[in-house]
Design a protein around this nucleic acid. Structure first.
Lengths: 313, 313
DNA sequence: CAAATGTCTATTATCCATAAAAAACAAGTA
DNA sequence: TACTTGTTTTTTATGGATAATAGACATTTG
C-alpha cells in the first residue's frame, strides 16, 4: 500500500501556513494551495477537511477561514513525512558511509530487505536506480556487489568530472555573447559575492549555489550523459559532506573564491584562463574530498572506518 | 510467479546434448551439467527427471544413460525460453525503433503494462534500469518521458564515446610493455586478420570481436564510469544494427581495417598515431551510424518488417 | 464565463504471495 | 578424500492487490 507521506508533509505545511495567517483570514483557493505546496488538489482537500474537523479552519462562503493558531501538537513527526524510497536511500548511505560494508561485500536483496525493513520489491527498485552511481553492481548470476565508497571511487569520479567540466567550460565560452547564459552567469556571480560577504552565517547555502553554478556551465552545450553524470556528483557530495561537516565554512569560502576566478575567466572569454581556473578549482575540490575521506571520516561511532573507507580494492 | 524460462531453456539444451551422445552412453554428472549449461543443479535435476519420465534417459548406477534420440518434438518453443524482462526489453526496443513513439512522448507505467502485457512492477523495474541509457527519463512528479532514438541522442552518445576512448587509448599505450594487455591485444589482432580473411561468411562475428576489442582498450586504465558507459554503446549498437542490416558486411569490413590500423598504432606506442587512428575509426563509426539512421531506419509504416524479420534466434 | 469546489477515474507507491531457481547442507559411494 | 546424488533452506522473478495520490470531468457560484 502506498504510504501517506505526501499527505502528512502537506498537512504540516498547512499548519505552517495557518500560523502565517491572521485568525479570521481566508486561505487561498485549493488550486493555488495545491500548486504552492506541490501536491495535488486531492491531497489538499483531504488536509483541509481534516483541519476543519480539528476546528482549526471553518469552511464558509467557498473559502477556508482560519479559526485558531493552536496547532503546535498537531504536526506529524518528520519521519513519517519521507517516502519509503527516500528513507531507504538515506539508511543505505548511512550504512555505507558508516563503513559497515567493506568493498567487495556481496549483498542480497532479501537480506537488505530484512536489515532495512523494507519490502524486497522496494529494495530491488532502489538498487536498480542506485546502480548508476557506481557503488553497487549487479552480479551476472544473482545478487549485488557493494563497491565501497573508497578513494578509488572518488578518483574515478573525479577523472570523469574533470573531462566533462573542462569540455563544458570551453563550450560555454563559445556561446554567442547575447545568449541568456551570460546573464545567468552574472547573476550567479552576484550571488557568490553576496554569500561570501555573509559567509559567517550563511555558509550552508553554498552547496545549492555550487550546484546551480556547475549545472549552468554544463548546460552550455547540453549532453544528457554529462548532465546525468552530474547527478552522481551532486549525490556524492550531498551525502559525503553531510557526514563530514568539519571545516565546512573554510572549505566553502575557498570554493567561492575559486568559483569567482572561474567565473571571471568565463566572462572574459579567454579560453586558456578558463581552462586554468577550472582545473584549479577541480584540483582543489578533489584534494578537499580526499583529505576529508582520509582524516575526517565521520566521528559518530566510526568503528573500523579506516579499513573500509580508505582502502582501495 | 517466477516464470520457468530457465527450466525450458535448459531442457532444450539437454535435448541437444542427448543427441550428441550415443545411445547407451552416460551423461556427465549433475554438477558438470549445471556449470556447462549455466543453470543450478536444482534445475538440471528437474530436467533430468523429466527426461527420465519421457524415457529418453535411464537413471542407472549413479549416472544417466541415453536411451533414445527421439526427441524432435519435445523442444519447448523458443519464446518460452526468454525471461519476462528480456522479452520486455526487446519489445520496447522494437516499439521504439519502429518509430511508434515520437520524442517527447510521455509514457506511463500503467499504459505500458497494458501495451506490453507485463505487470506494472515489471515495467517499472525495466524503466528504472533502462533510464541509464538516456532514452527515457523519469519525470519529477510522475510518469516518464520518452526521449527518442534520435540523431541528437546518437550525437551526444558519440561525443562522450570519443572523449572516453581517446583517453583510454592513450592510457593503454602507457602501460608497461610486459603487462598482459599487450598479448591480449596481439591475440585480438590475429582474430581480426582471421575474420577479415573469412569475411564473406563470418561477418556476423564482428560485433562480438568489436566489443572485446574496445573493452580491452578501455580496461587499460579502468574507470567504472567509462566501462558502464560502454554498456550503453554496446546496447545501442546491438539493437540499432539488428534493425539495420543493410550493407552489414561492407560496414564490418571497413571497421576491421580501421581496427587493424588502430591496433598497429597501439602496438607501436606512438601516441600521436594512436590518437589519429582512434579518431579516424570513431569518426567513421559515427558517420555510418548516422547514415543508417537517416536512410535506412525502418520508418513509421514498416511494422511487419521489423518485428520478425530483423530478429534472429 | 472564469474560477471555485465537488465527484469520479486513472496512476503510482508499496507491500505481499508464490513458484522457480539457486545455494547450502547432508549423506553415500568409489 | 573427492565426487556424486539427495534434501532442505534461501533467494529471486514476477504477478497481484490496495490505499494514496494525481488528474479529468462536472457542477456551482459570483
Amino acid at each position: 500500500m502506498k504510504s501517506d507521506t505526501v499527505y502528512k508533509r502537506t498537512y504540516n505545511q498547512m499548519l505552517d501556513l495557518i500560523q502565517d495567517h491572521a485568525v479570521g483570514a481566508p486561505l487561498p483557493s485549493e488550486t493555488v494551495l495545491a500548486s504552492e505546496m506541490g501536491a495535488s488538489r486531492t491531497t489538499i482537500r483531504k488536509v483541509l477537511n481534516e483541519l476543519c474537523g480539528a476546528a482549526l479552519l471553518r469552511f464558509e462562503d467557498r473559502s477556508r477561514i482560519v479559526l485558531s493558531h493552536d496547532c503546535r501538537d498537531l504536526y506529524h513527526p518528520t519521519v513519517e513525512t519521507v517516502s519509503a524510497s527516500d528513507r531507504l536511500e538515506k539508511l543505505f548511505m548511512e550504512w555505507m558511509l558508516r563503513g559497515d560494508a567493506k568493498p567487495g561485500t556481496a549483498i542480497n536483496e532479501a537480506e537488505m530487505a530484512r536489515r532495512f525493513d523494507i519490502s524486497t520489491t522496494g529494495i530491488r527498485e532502489f538498487l536498480n536506480r542506485f546502480s548508476r552511481f557506481g557503488l553497487v553492481e549487479r552480479r551476472p548470476g544473482s545478487g549485488w556487489v557493494f563497491k565501497g565508497f573508497s578513494e578509488n571511487f572518488a578518483s574515478e569520479l573525479f577523472e570523469i568530472r574533470e573531462m566533462f567540466e573542462l569540455r563544458s567550460a570551453i563550450a560555454f565560452c563559445r556561446q554567442p555573447r547575447d545568449a541568456p547564459c551570460w546573464n545567468k552567469l552574472r547573476q550567479i556571480e552576484q550571488e557568490h559575492h553576496a554569500l561570501l560577504a555573509d559567509i559567517e552565517t550563511r555558509f550552508h547555502d553554498f552547496s545549492d549555489l555550487d550546484d546551480r553554478f556547475h549545472r549552468l556551465v554544463i548546460h552550455g552545450a547540453p549532453n544528457r550523459f554529462i548532465e546525468d553524470f552530474y547527478d552522481i556528483i551532486t549525490f556524492v557530495f550531498h551525502y559525503h559532506y553531510q557526514w563530514n561537516k568539519k571545516s565546512e565554512k573554510q572549505r566553502n569560502r575557498t570554493a567561492i573564491v575559486e568559483h569567482l576566478r572561474y567565473i571571471e575567466a568565463l566572462l572574459s572569454g579567454d579560453e586558456a584562463a578558463v581552462d586554468a581556473a577550472c582545473r584549479a578549482h577541480l584540483k582543489s575540490a578533489r584534494l578537499t574530498l580526499f583529505q576529508s575521506m582520509i582524516n575526517e571520516t565521520p566521528a559518530g561511532g566510526m568503528q573500523g572506518n579506516g579499513a573500509s573507507v580508505a582502502t582501495p580494492n
